[in-house]
């Protein structure tokens, strides 16, 4: 069982992410509405993948990412950035800071599911 943490300040967006991934086998979900809450979740539960929004109040997704990469325990934690910012600067900045994948909203649910599968190295999408 793999745990995916969806981080977004919009509850509807979190539900959309989870709904998109609900067909994946052997995954469960955790949610966080802001950066600090996300870090707390990481500190107290085992998380295998972070799906992270960039534009959030208080703590920007990039700050969260940089914090994780500076911490030995989270250096290798896969992080998929999911953002409305489609410009090249943001994309390359995020990848340079250590994002595993960079996807833009609106996203297609099957595409997100495929990316998550790939990153987690779980079963082939077809069964």
């Amino acid at each position: 069982m793999k745990t995916i943490l969806a981080v977004d300040d919009s509850p509807t967006m979190r539900r959309m992410v989870i709904a998109s991934l609900s067909t994946l086998p052997k995954v469960k979900f955790e949610e966080a509405g802001n950066g600090l809450e996300a870090i707390e979740r990481l500190a107290i539960t085992a998380v295998h993948l972070l799906i992270l929004d960039l534009n959030m109040p208080d703590m920007h997704g990039m700050e969260l990412l940089q914090f994780l990469r500076s911490h030995p325990a989270y250096q290798d934690l896969p992080v998929i950035i999911l953002t409305t910012r489609g410009d090249e600067t943001s994309r390359s900045a995020a990848l340079a800071a250590g994002a595993t994948r960079y996807m833009t909203k609106p996203f297609h649910p099957p595409e997100l599911a495929a990316t998550v599968n790939e990153v987690l190295g779980t079963a082939e999408p077809s069964a």
């Binding site: 509850p11 509807t12 539900r15 959309m16 709904a19 609106p106 297609h108 649910p109 099957p110 077809s126």
Partner: peptide, 23 residues
Amino acid sequence: MTTATIQTDSDFFAEILEDYYAE
């Protein structure tokens, strides 16, 4: 590959629409 039974993304989120409007 899985067969796509969902035509559009908005169909996919039909269940979430009420939440969407509320937010």
